[in-house]
Design a binder for these strands. Structure first.
Lengths: 148, 148
DNA sequence: TATAAACAGTTTGTATTCAAACTGTTTTAG
DNA sequence: CTAAAACAGTTTGAATACAAACTGTTTATA
């Protein structure tokens, strides 16, 4: 009997994770539309954030993929789509022709500057009386479930 | 300065949610492959679970969509794919020809019986010394972020 | 009782995801 | 120095997701 309960609890946990992700995506999408970036997706912002903050504006696709947790064929399409939108540039690395060097364009940098202040308004943290620490704790809890 | 930290914390929270979902999907997918159901997806199990436990074996597409949190066009493809795999049957409701009545097939029921005991082994809860209560609490926390 | 509105599902078009197979480049080893 | 292995990306094919436009059916309303 305990086991059956557990099964259902775990199932509901699964559903919560799937829903949370969908909900998050929709919230961010709405903010992006408000900003006039209706053709930019949450996933694209992952790439742009990485380039802007973690890679000092330049990285190859494999590196981006590893860091944002996607596989390399997903990256190919993401980079294709970001290229079309002129947010990044894709150049072959002349020193190692296997690599593409991805760089943020001016438009990409401008986007990040406009997007960032809006991100943290996705949830009204002050109304929720959530602190930085609360958020970091939750993130840590979520990450701990990944690493198990 | 506090605000900038918040922006990044929220960004990392986003990333954690996306990763957790990917990780979960992969874990379940592996279990499904072990069971010999390599062509069944996590999303399909959402539909099958709903039909089996919450709908007493029968529901229309809109009802399923509302309950598992997907939009109706997503449901159309899910039902198409579950039909191909003979896990469910789609029949027009003669009493209201706008509705499709979705029913679990024998194969679908058998699947659920085999799948369920395996779900809760996705995470080794005993090793993690996690109780039913811990899981339910986490689920509640996640859901609270959806409702905000 | 027509006509409009509401409802359930499908189709279309675009984006994402990923494994597997593939191309081309670079490195390693014999 | 050449063949094999490793590496970075792309392509392909199948699944999911969702908005918007569409078809048919039922219900409401004027």
């Amino acid at each position: 009997m305990k086991e059956k309960e557990l099964v259902h609890s775990i199932h509901y946990y699964f559903m919560a994770v799937l829903r949370l992700r969908q909900n998050l995506k929709q919230r961010v999408q709405r903010k992006l539309i408000d900003l006039g970036y209706e053709d930019i997706t949450l996933e694209m912002t992952q790439v742009l954030y990485y380039l802007h903050f973690d890679a000092e504006g330049e990285a190859n696709q494999q590196e981006i993929a590893d860091n944002i947790g996607k596989n390399k064929s997903s990256l190919t399409s993401l980079i294709d789509n970001l290229s079309k939108r002129e947010m990044i540039k894709r150049n072959i690395n002349p020193k190692n022709r296997r690599n593409n060097i991805i760089t943020l364009t001016k438009k990409g940098k401008k986007f990040m500057e406009e997007f960032l202040p809006v991100v943290y308004k996705t949830y009204n943290t002050s109304k929720l009386s959530m602190t930085l620490k609360d958020i970091n704790n939750l993130t840590q809890t979520l990450n701990s479930f990944i690493e198990i």
